[in-house]
């Protein structure tokens, strides 16, 4: 593992600032069984099962400072959710050390839950049949939130997230975006210092995503709430997090600054260009040589990709304008998705 986060180093060096989440060598193993197929398989499944042990999280260590916003990414089945479930006290680790906000989550679960907020993007924590505001009132009692604090926070949340329009609607009638806003508000009513979000923007439209990101930034700024979020949408992370953690096959592949990662791991540059007219298309093969790829975006828009070490952008552009009649040119960094995809595929960072 390279690129350990600066604060991370500080912790091991014994600096006074103490992390709010500290995880050492965390491992979780599951026993699953193989389902046999077919009619005969169904009969066999009833009586004999073949078990196999899967290590979903494998020796993960990390630490998070108060007030940080950390993006936690990985492919499906990489171990993201299992980590979050251990951090929130739902799952007991097979081995390893885990302290969050002064608690051992799985041991002190019931006390610990007062100090965290959790949102699962796929599932609501609100009561399905009752109005949103009634869910909030229940949560107020469940977390023993004082009346004044409750009112104040609800007021702020309603304003930023625009909840007022549907506070009196039953949850089951809300759209996904509306529901997610309510879920977020619900998870923060008791003002927890730690917030875990599992895929908070999954399936949302651009406006809703934006709303939610702005809200998270605001909460992080005003309350210094520490946020850890998993997502498939890397733009979430670019918007919100300075630090990124990449997990694959249960192991942390990368832990560090997002910009630094881009700088170090971006291998390609890309140049997007717009042709003057259709006649130019026939000449395209002339520039796609020597490790430079050229792909079509739309009729007149094309994208060249090349390794940074092999070619300089200036040289590539010079060849381009000399060969083709081009109306416009944009030089872009390699998208973070591509970098991450490469990390997943190779399974290593360097």
């Amino acid at each position: 593992m390279i690129g350990a986060h600066a604060a991370n180093c500080a912790q091991w060096a014994g600096y006074s600032m103490s992390p709010i989440v500290l995880v050492e060598n965390l491992t979780k193993e599951f026993r699953t069984f193989r389902r046999r197929e077919g009619v005969w398989g169904a009969l066999q499944n009833l009586f004999v099962r073949e078990y196999l042990t899967v290590r979903a999280v494998d020796g993960v260590s990390l630490s998070i400072e108060p007030g940080e916003m950390v993006g936690y990414i990985g492919a499906n089945g990489a171990g993201k959710s299992t980590t979050i479930k251990m951090l929130t006290g739902i799952l007991v680790p097979t081995s390893g050390k885990l302290v969050a906000n002064g608690f051992v989550p799985y041991r002190d679960r019931r006390h610990y839950t007062r100090h965290i907020g959790v949102v699962f993007g796929q599932r609501t924590q609100l009561w399905w049949d009752i109005a949103v505001i009634e869910s909030f009132k229940l949560l107020k009692e469940i977390y023993s939130i004082p009346e004044a604090n409750y009112r104040q926070r609800l007021g702020v949340f309603s304003e930023i997230l625009g909840l007022n329009d549907y506070l009196h609607t039953p949850v089951r009638k809300l759209s996904l975006g509306e529901r997610m806003r309510c879920d977020l508000a619900a998870s923060l009513l008791h003002n927890p210092p730690l917030l875990f979000l599992d895929e908070p923007t999954i399936g949302l439209d651009v406006v809703a995503k934006d709303h939610i990101r702005e809200f998270l930034k605001e909460v992080n700024r005003t309350e210094r709430t520490t946020v850890m979020l998993t997502t498939h949408d890397l733009s979430d992370i670019e918007e919100l997090c300075r630090r990124i953690l990449i997990i694959d096959k249960g192991k942390i592949l990368f832990d560090g600054d997002l910009q630094e990662m881009k700088k170090r791991l971006a291998k390609f540059n890309q140049v997007k260009f717009f042709l003057k007219d259709r006649a130019q298309v026939a000449r395209l093969p002339l520039i796609a040589t020597d490790g430079i790829s050229c792909e079509r975006v739309d009729e007149l828009t094309y994208l060249m990709r090349f390794e940074r070490e092999q070619h300089s952008s200036a040289e590539v552009i010079r060849t381009l304008v000399n060969t083709l009649a081009v109306r416009d040119i944009l030089v872009e960094e390699e998208p973070i998705e591509d970098i991450v995809k490469r990390i997943y595929l190779s399974g290593e960072v360097a």
Binding site: R35, V39, N45
Partner: peptide, 9 residues
């Protein structure tokens, strides 16, 4: 239906 009985073992 036959195969799905695992859910009710």
């Amino acid at each position: 239906g036959f195969v799905n009985t695992l859910a009710y073992r």
